[in-house]
């Protein structure tokens, strides 16, 4: 565990989260949320939680994002806030 790397990823994660909830285009938000998940998964892998990281990679960054995309493509990409 390298705490500087850890901290950098953490900051990336926070930035991604902020962007994901603030960007007006929902599709972008979703993709950024995917990035967020992936960064999280990196973080956990680096913390020694391999199983959690694996799951987050398949679920959070994979299935979850895909479900979001599928839903957004059937509704609207626009968001007022």
């Amino acid at each position: 565990m390298i705490w500087i790397l850890d901290l950098m990823i953490l900051i990336l994660v926070v930035v991604c989260a902020l962007v994901a909830i603030n960007v007006k285009d929902l599709l972008s938000a979703t993709i950024i949320f995917g990035v967020y998940s992936f960064a999280m998964c990196l973080l956990w892998a680096e913390m020694g939680a391999v199983d959690v990281a694996f799951t987050e990679a398949t679920v959070g960054a994979g299935i979850s994002t895909i479900l979001f995309v599928a839903a957004i493509l059937h509704t609207s990409r626009r968001s007022k806030d």
Partner: peptide, 17 residues
């Protein structure tokens, strides 16, 4: 190794996706 029913299941599901 890392993995198990849940992760594997998701990967199998992803193939259909």
């Amino acid at each position: 190794s890392p993995g198990g029913g849940f992760q594997g299941g998701v990967i199998l599901g992803a193939s259909f996706v």
